[in-house]
Amino acid sequence: MNPLAWLRGWWGSRRIPLAWLLLTRQPVRLAVALAGISFAGILMFMQFGFRDGLFDASVTIHKLFDADLVLISPRSSSSVSMAGFPRRRLVQTLADPEVTGVTPVHWSLLLWRNPQTRATRSILTLGFEPTDPLFTDPGLAARARVLSERGRVLFDELSRPEFGPVAQWFKQGRTVESEISGKRIRVGGLVSLGTSFGADGNLLTSSETFLQLMPNTPPGSIEVGLVRLRRGADVAAVQARLRRELPSDVQVLTKAGFIAFEQDYWRSSTSIGFIFSLGAAMGFVVGCVIVYQILYSDVSDHLPEYATLMAMGYRLTHLLGVVAREGLLLAILGYIPAFAAGQGLYLVVRNATNLPVAMDTSRATLVFSLILVMCMGSAALAMRRLGDADPAEIF
């Protein structure tokens, strides 16, 4: 094969990157477009991140429970408003052959006094029998022995700093004492649980100490009942059986259902989810406006060139493809800095609030899809300007 003929054929088959050349012809306009797209992407990343982080943070404690089924009162609406139910309902579940163990749990928000500043703040307090399993963490059993002594608590070292330097003082060997609901308590150990949207800190204590702190609790009443089943048991079948056998003053949920119960409250019963979704939508609209203005101006500025190409025999579909490729390039180039900035901002939010805000594949894909739709939709609107590219009128 003649090398010169091959080279001519290869060169003739090459496509001129017209979309890229049109975008880079005016670097300032391209920079403004990419800045606008990145800003819209960052806004969507943050809004979706806050929303999903809120839902994940609302079930920080729920995920740690060592349970297959969870009993709660039908009057409970969320972790910040848990109602009590008779403890004997939990005992009744032991009659089922698949149930191997239960743990009654007291659950309430109590007022903790900062031992340094003396300011008070609500803290989630869980009361349980120290000999019963509570969380899946195998190391908790050893630390829970100290709770057998009345007036002792385990403090969550991941609680927000507004509760005071409790973990720091305890690790230094100091005796850390404070007040809960006006009653004196002593920190007997530390745990690592994590904050939630409904609670900025956590305490673990024995049922005896909890009832001392909450003397008005009805006798024999608990807020949460943990039920553990035999390995390999059909959880759904046991749940259905217990629902039939237990009275209507208790609700039987799977652990996943208990998590969904909490998340559904924040998603549907509050305006928070809607607000964050609306913020993401506003970022999408702002990005659409910016990209449309950039592409429309670009098409308008090069209308004589497009008309010349049409006079040379290029079909309108070819020119529409150029604008579409411009939109695709803008989407890719604008997404990259938005993704990098989102990662950095998520790190800042985690360090500042301890909320589980992190980048995941589903959110990254969602934001890229929205940016792609934003750019391609704006390109489609800008394509209408090509209808004016009539060589007979322009020249």
Score class of each variant (00 low, 15 high):
E177H: 07
M310Y: 02
E157A: 15
V187H: 08
A364G: 12
M44L: 06
L366Q: 14
A40K: 01
Q343C: 14
L54Y: 02
L43D: 00
G101E: 13
F258Q: 04
W112S: 04
L140V: 15
H106L: 13
D156P: 15
R325D: 00
P215T: 08
T136K: 15
V105E: 01
T217A: 06
A31Y: 01
R150V: 10
G41E: 05
R118M: 06
W107N: 07
I185N: 05
F276R: 05
S378I: 07
A83F: 11
T175R: 13
C288E: 05
G151F: 11
A141K: 09
A358R: 11
G12Q: 12
D360Q: 04
T270H: 05
M82E: 08
A380G: 14
P161I: 14
I272K: 02
P247C: 04
A119Q: 11
F65W: 12
G198S: 06
V373Q: 11
L134H: 06
V322I: 12
W169T: 01
S362P: 02
M383H: 10
P165M: 15
T131S: 15
F274C: 00
I180R: 06
T205V: 11
A382W: 01
L226K: 04
F163K: 10
I222N: 02
L295Y: 02
V286D: 01
Q26L: 05
D137T: 11
L328S: 13
A240N: 09
G36W: 00
Q116V: 14
S378D: 03
G377Q: 09
L126W: 01
G257M: 08
K183S: 12
A95M: 08
T365K: 08
A57R: 02
G327L: 03
R315I: 00
G189S: 10
A141C: 03
L54N: 09
R243D: 04
L7F: 13
Y292D: 03
R184V: 07
S221G: 00
S73T: 01
F258R: 02
T93V: 15
T308M: 10
T317R: 10
Q92V: 00
I259H: 00
A256S: 14
D137E: 15
E162W: 14
E223S: 05
E208P: 01
R14P: 02
S268H: 12
F284E: 09
S271D: 07
T175P: 03
A35Y: 01
L43N: 02
E157W: 04
R87I: 01
Q116T: 14
D56C: 04
A341L: 13
L30Q: 03
Q343R: 15
G342A: 05
L355S: 08
G377L: 11
L18F: 09
R160G: 04
W107F: 15
P161A: 15
P74K: 07
L4P: 05
Q251P: 00
H318Q: 09
P17I: 04
R89V: 01
P3H: 05
I222V: 10
L147N: 09
V80D: 13
F163I: 04
F170C: 12
Q47L: 05
F128I: 07
L316A: 03
A392N: 10
G201H: 11
H302S: 03
S271I: 08
V289M: 10
S248L: 03
V286A: 13
L94E: 14
S76T: 13
